[in-house]
Design a protein around this nucleic acid. Sequence first.
DNA 1: GAGTTTGAAACT
DNA 2: CAGTTTCAAACTC
Length: 360
Amino acid sequence: MESCDKMNGGTADIVSGGGNKKGSDNGICCNCQKSQCLKLYCECLRAGNLCNNSCTCKACENNENNRDKVYEKKKEIELRDPEAFQSKIIIGGNEAARHRKGCNCRKSKCKNKHCACFSAGVGCSNQCKCDDCMNEYGIVNNQQVLVLTNDSNNNGSNNITVDNGSSQFQHLFADNDGCLQNMQNSESDMDRIFNEIEQADYYYYGQQTSLSSNSENGINNNNVNLPSNQQDSHVPAAAVCYNYNLYGNIIQNNVAAPNYHQHLTTPRQISPVEYNNTIDDLDLEGPPSSWFYGEPSSLPSFFTTDTTIQDSNQQYKPETLNYDDIFQQEALPISPTMNQSAQHLTNTQPPSHPNNNQLP
DNA sequence: GAGTTTGAAACT
DNA sequence: CAGTTTCAAACTC
């Protein structure tokens, strides 16, 4: 039997292709045999996903038909560990990323994927109780900007894929990955993200630059007209997507950047930016935000510290809230307040939604 | 593909 | 809280 492939070389196709009856996957799948996919052993459940068509689990109950049971089990798990469904990785401020609980490795020396820290792409920290650790804290063993590739060379298809760069990389984005989940709602979503990135004003070294349609030399091939002393960018722009809980606190964010070479060879049409954020898990999350744009190297500092999902008890029912009235969804450029925003993330509390309206 | 190793999660 | 068992992923052959 074909099993859920965990060793896919770091490329996860996040285009749904439609017809996914068991739920969205984010590239996550499981092979659970005994847990009924109702324990944290199940990667799908851990990520907040229902199991999907890529899963080869047996007696799976983590599906649409058992939403109530899934919810009850998740509550049980959260009783044992209130942070169980939060990202395992904490990235914030100027500190190196670390695993929330750390690892307890005895034999692996923390240098393979048996180690939770290594597997998540971060160095071990003083949270860990590992022996003979060779996974030094502060050494991030992956890249931090998600590269989106329009993979037109793959089987002649036009699918957009996520090139993680390494098999470890995807774990930065695997947990409760609401932004990618939302992108799966439509095959055109990734395409739209590209367009939005290009539609946005470009920022470079914190300065807004202008778009030029007929640039000739160097970096200008990518249609960004940069000052001559700043023409060394690999990627013209990148975007970050925040998801907020019902209190307006960031609970998840993602970073995306267009593939540079693809960008050079396939000029993309600039189209009006539209935001149709579908909210799937009203009980857990507030509305996902728009994508924000900025200079790529600045984006990792926008990763947030961990935040409690404060509505996991379904206190706020979807029908009682009018999200449009609470949040105005619109794209806001990161710069020129980039530094100020980044500074906020060094605090314990992440920044609130730009149009935050605190709920009771 | 089957079997072994590993360490987190669950349990006692 | 500590020790043990269960579990599924990672790894090896």
